[in-house]
């Protein structure tokens, strides 16, 4: 019960500080955030958009871990945990895409630019979307669990590449991508708040508290989800 209270307080802290603390040119007090070049007030999206992408990675990782556990002990509870993680991972992946797209409209001019980051999350949505199609197409629950476990293991192998590597080795608009230096014309590492943390101490604090709060929230949602799946399967077998 204590962790629920901690989650409530942490999330309130992130919402209050993340929304109300002003972004100024030269932060003097503890309740001011610095300007990140090219982002302005829109930099505050980092407190709410990045955690959704982070949670989809955590969820897909957990889907793989419980998939491996299912293959080891053939316990359908592990498949329920894996399925719950997959559903939440997909939900947060869609949220990351939608929030990023709204932000892109106001920062880059259009909702969709086929930036490497956007392309990679689109491919991830396709990969994991087809896993749901696979799950719903198989009626035998043991076969469904086995196929889903193997698919989630193979699918997760692509996640580090699509989330962490590909958007950082290509030219792009998203913070963290490579950029062309206007002075020298050479390809350089982008001035990104995500990669080299051009945030000041308190902005970084709010960012990491946000990651922690969203992770606890995910944990709670995941527990509620997998327990309901287990109960549903138990009742349907009765």
């Amino acid at each position: 019960m204590i962790w629920k209270a901690i989650l409530f307080i942490l999330m309130c802290f992130v919402i209050i500080t993340g929304i109300s603390f002003p972004i100024v040119e030269n932060p003097q007090g503890w309740m001011q955030f610095p300007i990140i070049p090219g982002l302005g007030e829109k930099a505050k999206i980092i407190f709410f958009h990045v955690p959704t992408a982070w949670l989809s990675v955590i969820a897909f990782l957990m889907a793989m871990v419980y998939g491996i556990r299912y293959l080891r002990n053939k316990n359908l509870d592990e498949d329920a945990k894996s399925a719950a993680a997959l559903q939440l991972g997909m939900m947060f992946c869609i949220l990351a895409t939608v929030t990023g797209s709204i932000w892109a409209k106001f920062n880059w001019g259009t909702f969709w630019n086929w930036d490497p980051r956007e392309t990679s999350i689109f491919i991830l949505l396709l990969i994991y979307g087809s896993l749901f199609a696979l799950r719903s197409a198989v009626e035998n629950e043991d076969k469904r669990a086995r196929l889903s476990a193997v698919y989630s293991i193979i699918a997760f192998l692509t996640v580090p590449f699509f989330i962490f590597i590909m958007p950082r080795i290509m030219l792009g608009l998203h913070p963290g991508s490579l950029e062309i230096d206007p002075n020298s014309g050479k390809i350089v590492q982008g001035t990104s708040p995500v990669v080299d943390f051009k945030m000041n101490g308190n902005m970084r604090l709010v960012f990491f508290v946000s990651l922690a709060a969203f992770t606890i929230l995910y944990w709670w949602m995941w527990k509620v989800r997998y327990r309901s799946i287990i109960i549903q399967e138990y009742i349907s077998k009765k």
Partner: peptide, 16 residues
């Protein structure tokens, strides 16, 4: 959920 789990009684594991 806790109330339903209590009503159903444990364990209702999916172990084969």
């Amino acid at each position: 959920l806790k109330a339903i789990e209590k009503e159903l009684g444990k364990p209702y594991s999916g172990k084969k």
